[in-house]
Structures are given as C-alpha cells and as structure tokens.
C-alpha cells in the first residue's frame, strides 16, 4: 500500500495539538509556525507542476498560499487528517494560478487563440447547465472541433512567464505600448484588483492573452471602439493608482 503519512508520529502529534490550539486562539504567530512546519506539503505539491513551464519558486509561493488557506479553514473536530484536507486546497490554488495568472503559452497558436473563448464558454455553460460541461458541449457552442478544445484545456497548464512587451498585435495604441514597457507582470497583477471585473477581464485578454481589441470586442460582445475606450480608461485609472502608490512598482 501507499504510505498514508509522510510525517513521523511526534510531528503529527505536534501538528494536531497546534491546529486545535489555533482553532481556539487564532494566534497569528502560531498560524505561521504551523505554515512553516507544513511547508514541505506545499513544496511537494508544487513539484507536481514543475514541468508546466512556470518557475518553481512561483509555484511554491502559490502552494504556500493554498497551505495558509487550508490552515485557516481546517476544523480539527471533523477528524480529517490535515494533509488530506490541505492537499486539495493547495492543488486548487495551483490550478487557479495556471488558469488565471499565467499566459505565455508553449502550445499551438490555435490553442492559444482559443483558450480565452474556451475558458469563458466553460464558465458560461457551468452556470447555465449547473454542472461542469463536457468537451463536446463547449466545442459545439464555439463551433470548433473537440480536439481543439482538448488542446486548449491542456494549454491552461502549459505556460511560461514572458515579458509583456513580447506580445504581438497589430492594433496596439501608443498607450498600450507605454503601459507594457513601464510595468512588469507582477505589478500589473496587483493593480488589476483595483478594476471592476469587466475592465479587469478586458485588460487580461489584451495584455496577457495577447488578443487584439477586435477579438476582445467579439469575445465580450461589444464594439472595438468601446473596447479601446475601456482600455484607455482602465489604464488611466491604473496610472493614477500608481502615481498615488509608487511603492507598488518596487
């Protein structure tokens, strides 16, 4: 059989006691102590994704965030071993990282082009069908072959980091280009949280998915002119935020 625990008995005893104490005291220092004690779980889970093109340090950080969330949500009284509870949370955090926060793709161009549409359709169908859709349902709605949807779904897990200014696109305005040269990816990620969901999505599609304004217009069902205006307004808002909070770029 596969061994059930990677911890020694003494470590498990310490962990269980610490988690019970944390549930009562909510002590931040104890929370961090537990996170340090269990960081091996985050590192080893992150290793599952080492071959997907993302720097391992990034993956480890994402996994550590998942670990902290697991620590916060864990209820000792349920009697579930912490590792069994934390692993799905850490995996979920890593999957979200690949789905939402990485964009430079080592996959066929068509899969890259299709990825945004497939993810959007997946979300839409999940809502309308009230279940996870099948691949053929997504393919039917997008009017593309099933194989391309499969490739595209795989591309969610096949990225590497890349500078923003390496992006292509024939319709980029000077404001787009300035923005790309001034900010790096991590800064932009932080700033996007200041936007409303729709604007955030448009900027993500524009700068991280490499879509043209016209493609974005088709994707969200509006005109290219309107997309251009929304991008300009969003960039102005982000610049304002940057000028008020210059530390955000350091």
């Amino acid at each position: 059989m596969i061994p059930e625990s990677a911890l020694g008995a003494a470590d498990e005893q310490w962990l269980n006691t610490a988690l019970e104490r944390l549930a009562v005291t909510h002590d931040p220092a104890l929370r961090m102590e537990i996170a340090a004690h269990e960081s091996w779980l985050a590192v080893r889970t992150a290793r599952r994704f080492w071959d997907r093109g993302e720097p391992f340090d990034d993956l480890t950080q994402v996994a550590q965030i998942g670990l902290l969330k697991a620590i916060d949500r864990f209820s000792p009284e349920r009697g579930v071993p912490f590792a069994a509870f934390a692993t799905p949370t850490i995996l979920g955090e890593l999957r979200r990282h690949f789905r939402d926060r990485t964009w430079s793709v080592h996959v066929p161009r068509r899969a890259k082009d299709l990825r945004g549409a497939v993810n959007a359709m997946r979300e839409e169908l999940t809502l309308t069908l009230e279940r996870s859709p099948r691949v053929d349902e997504i393919a039917d709605r997008l009017n593309v072959p099933v194989d391309q949807v499969i490739e595209s779904l795989e591309s969610n897990l096949a990225y590497r980091t890349q500078q923003l200014d390496a992006r292509g696109g024939s319709d980029r305005s000077s404001s787009d280009t300035d923005f790309e040269h001034v900010l790096d990816r991590e800064v932009v990620i932080g700033l996007l949280d200041h936007l409303r969901p729709r604007e955030r999505r448009i900027l993500t599609l524009r700068f991280f998915e490499g879509m043209s304004q016209e493609q974005i217009a088709q994707e969200i069902g509006t005109s290219q002119v309107h997309v251009g205006r929304l991008i300009a307004a969003s960039l102005a808002l982000l610049r304002d935020h940057l000028s008020e909070n210059p530390a955000a770029t350091s």
Partner: peptide, 22 residues
Amino acid sequence: AQHPDLAVCSTVLASVCTEHGL
C-alpha cells in the same frame, strides 16, 4: 514504496480520485 514522497502522491490521488492504490 516507502519513500515519504509517495505519501504525498497518495494524498494528491485521494483528493482527485475515488480509488487508488499501489
């Protein structure tokens, strides 16, 4: 089969699979 990393493997598989084994 006793390597600690296989315990992590087991935990990961348990979180996405109905059954698993070695």
